[in-house]
């Protein structure tokens, strides 16, 4: 069983809730990513999602798109980020999930991608543009190598698909709170609680909720029904603003880590 699976099994067994922060990898540079990860408390955050910058992120709203296009303009390369993470492995306590487009995974060849991601210190993978129809190979490679593939369920997913997704998603199911792209929303969808409870009843797997979760109050509300809350755009917006101000990597990391602590304080 992988480190990530153990973490979620223990959390679930203890009924403890967690925060999953998302940060754009290699933004504005790999050193900043490492600095942020060093400051994250694994007691509060079961893992961190590292978004891999991509030229055509169809599931992302303007905030994450901006971070991706800036990272790419500044010469982001996959190997540069992976090398930096590998070199800093001993300094990073929190497990890492790569959130990456299948365009990138396919280009590097799925098996090879999993190998280099593991070598860089990643513990698992989320591929937001890979539906179950195309996911079997990657899930099989993940099982073979102890590198779980987290699958997403959307409000538009019917029961048959929910069960199929739950069968391969490890170690938790990513429930997308709303139909749409990533981005901050002022309120949580009214049907969220009901959807999460239904998914839990059907699958019995840990469930983490993302998309539109932006504040400490949202985190608290989500964790009343789910195992974890995923916060992306609200964090990346602060990264964008910090970069706009011309902050140094340690200063950007302080901003991000500070906001993550603020969100984590809302965990029950």
């Amino acid at each position: 069983m992988s480190r990530l699976q153990t973490t979620f099994r223990d959390l679930h067994a203890a009924g403890r809730k967690t925060l999953l922060p998302y940060v754009t990898g290699g933004y504005p540079d790999a050193a900043t990513t490492v600095e942020i990860l060093r400051q994250i408390d694994p007691q509060r955050c079961a893992c961190v999602e590292i978004g891999i910058p991509f030229s055509d992120p169809i599931a992302d709203g303007p905030v994450i798109q901006t971070s991706f296009s800036r990272a790419l303009e500044h010469g982001f390369r996959l190997d540069g980020l992976f090398d930096a993470l590998r070199a800093a492995r001993d300094q990073i306590a929190v497990p890492l999930l790569a959130m990456v487009s299948y365009s990138i995974v396919y280009r590097r060849d799925p098996r090879h991608f999993v190998e280099i991601a593991q070598a860089a210190g990643f513990d698992g993978l989320i591929v937001p543009d890979l539906a179950i129809e195309e996911a079997d190979d990657l899930a099989a490679i993940g099982r073979e190598r102890g590198f779980p593939l987290v699958m997403m369920v959307a409000p538009t997913t019917d029961e048959t698909r929910r069960r199929r997704i739950a069968a391969i998603s490890e170690p938790f199911i990513y429930y997308q709170a709303l139909a749409g792209v990533t981005g901050e929303r002022s309120a949580l969808p009214p049907d969220l609680v009901q959807h999460v409870q239904q998914l839990r009843a059907e699958t019995g797997k840990p469930i983490c909720v993302g998309f539109g979760i932006a504040t400490a109050a949202h985190v608290q509300a989500v964790c009343a029904v789910a195992d974890g809350a995923i916060v992306g755009s609200a964090i990346v917006r602060r990264m964008n603003e910090s970069v706009d101000r011309g902050d140094s990597p340690p200063a950007i990391a302080r901003v991000v880590a500070g906001f993550i602590r603020e969100l984590a304080a809302a965990l029950p």
Partner: peptide, 12 residues
Amino acid sequence: GGQYVPEVLMGA
């Protein structure tokens, strides 16, 4: 060919 899209579009 195939279908490499987010889950949210699979129903449609």
